[in-house]
Amino acid sequence: MNIFRLTGDLSHLAAIIILLLKIWKSRSCAGISGKSQILFALVFTTRYLDLFTSFISLYNTCMKLIYIGCAYATVYLIYAKFRATYDGNHDSFRVEFLVVPVGGLSVLINHDFSPLEILWTFSIYLESVAILPQLFMISKTGEAETITTHYLFCLGLYRALYLFNWIWRFYFEGFFDMIAIVAGVVQTVLYCDFFYLYVTKVLKGKKLSLPA
């Protein structure tokens, strides 16, 4: 555990909690892509099946349980409790265009052709693109609430910090996981455009709105 890994995890946790609190406090999930949230729930579910097979640390187990619990709570708020506020018309990204290729790729390129390992690989690939429905929704509506941009920033920062974590681990532990690294780079790159807007607009007190 190094500082990049820890701050990455905490950034991820912050993102998840920001989103939950935003929906809970405003009693609304307007502007939030339910599809991205379902994908994240699927990501955690398929990745953390090792909760049943191996124990790594109390920290690891607790964080996994919190991530999974929050992911399902978010999906529940969007599709059940505050369903009336869900903006389904703008959440029109076709998720099968992500899930099907990602499923195929995880069967083809993995560390080990076993069910758990393929599901882990699937979750890594899927996570790298799971935010696309959310970014698509923002590009469609042309704007995002400031709190939503904080959520996205923390979520993007998390994977960027993981990249530094992997550099650290490569130098000091000789450890690297090519699947995680390549997917992590892809994931981080997808946020670059958003990072630029966040720094140039949101941090200067302006609302994030895209030119028409």
Binding site: D50, S57, W120, N165
Partner: peptide, 10 residues
């Protein structure tokens, strides 16, 4: 068969 891979990251 090989030892199952352990993914210690989140």
């Amino acid at each position: 068969s090989q030892e199952p891979l352990r993914h210690d990251e989140l």
